[in-house]
């Protein structure tokens, strides 16, 4: 009894010290390449994380925003840098680049390190729309696949429309006829929805906050296994359709291929400390971003799944 107590006490005492000692990255000035512009959601999440990493390690971790080419430029920058841990970058959906002929990344081009954020895709319609559930949308598309104008809330064949098309494939919709419309971003897609230019917008839930509060749009479903804590009224696709299709966007940290396992473990541990910090957790919660943790090994498997899902959808769309 005494032994366990003192052991527990000792552990509790040593825990912060151990955590501090583990934070051995960045041990020299390093860069984190963000594949989006200053001020977007990705910029926010990774700046929040980088600020913690910088504070814990006492070394500058500079954010480099490279949004050109829809993210291909930024990914190319860090994939081609030296695998010594001085340049890492944002890991986000990448499989579509190769399938659309924009770049040749596969999951082997990267060294996965950790995932810190996941935001499921959601289906949003205009207030007063006759489509009030994902089931009705699926039935409508089964009968007439081209009858609805669906905004991808960004480029098509990307984070938001892939889970949607994946679900419609499962439902037996002729997806080659779907009328998917690209937008310059979620804000532009929602503007189209409000002006009557499209019938459905696919995006994340927090992005629809302002227009939903204004009573102009309505969320009908979210692509996650369980309802989100912040949005208890939005039903999940799993519950509505009985099919466990989830997906959306996700953000993590990866490096160029060929990083030493010991280095990866060190960065992963440092990122974990930053992820668990009060500042990061509350910062994510404030803006409705989902703080989800995956270590390097889990992320590697997840990236493979992402490639398979993307491949299936893009092949189905372009027979």
């Amino acid at each position: 009894m005494f032994i366990t107590r003192s052991l527990a006490f000792g552990l509790a005492l040593s825990a912060p010290v151990a955590a501090m000692a583990e934070v051995a990255w960045p041990e020299k000035p390093s860069q984190l390449v963000v594949i989006a512009g200053a001020g977007g959601g990705s910029d926010y999440v990774l700046r929040l994380l980088a600020a913690e990493l910088e504070k814990n390690a006492g070394q500058p971790l500079t954010i480099v925003n490279q949004a050109q080419g829809g993210g291909v430029v930024g990914m190319t920058t860090y994939v081609n840098s030296a695998p010594d841990g001085s340049t890492v970058g944002q890991m986000s959906p990448f499989a579509q680049y190769r399938m659309m002929g924009q770049a040749d990344f596969t999951s082997d081009s990267f060294t996965p390190i950790a995932l810190v954020n996941m935001d499921p895709a959601a289906v949003t319609v205009a207030e007063g729309s006759e489509l009030t559930s994902i089931g009705m949308i699926a039935d409508r598309l089964k009968a007439e696949p081209a009858s609805l104008r669906i905004s991808c809330g960004g480029g098509c064949s990307a984070s938001w429309d892939i889970p949607f098309v994946s679900l419609m494939l499962d439902e037996g919709v002729d997806v080659t006829k779907l009328n998917l419309i690209p937008a310059t971003g979620s804000a532009a897609g929602l503007q189209e929805l409000a002006s009557g230019g499209v019938d459905i917008v696919l995006s994340s839930l927090p992005e629809t906050d302002a227009l939903r509060d204004a009573g102009m749009v309505k969320n009908v479903a979210v692509f996650s296994a369980e309802r989100l804590e912040r949005y208890p009224d939005v039903p999940t696709v799993a519950a509505e359709m009985g099919k466990d299709v989830s997906g959306g966007t996700w953000r993590g940290i990866a490096g160029p291929a060929g990083m030493e396992p010991e280095l990866v473990a060190r960065i992963e541990a440092a990122v974990k400390v930053a992820f668990d910090s009060e500042t990061f957790q509350s910062g994510m919660k404030d803006r409705g971003f989902g703080a989800v943790w995956m270590d390097a090994a889990t992320l590697a498997g997840f990236m493979k799944d992402h490639e398979l899902q993307t491949e299936r959808v893009i092949d189905a769309l372009n027979p």
Partner: peptide
């Protein structure tokens, strides 16, 4: 202003200048 200008040969000691 933290513009990520390249440090080149000064990279190992650039921490002191940011």
């Amino acid at each position: 202003l933290h513009v990520p200008l390249p440090w080149g040969v000064l990279a190992p000691i650039s921490g002191r200048f940011i």
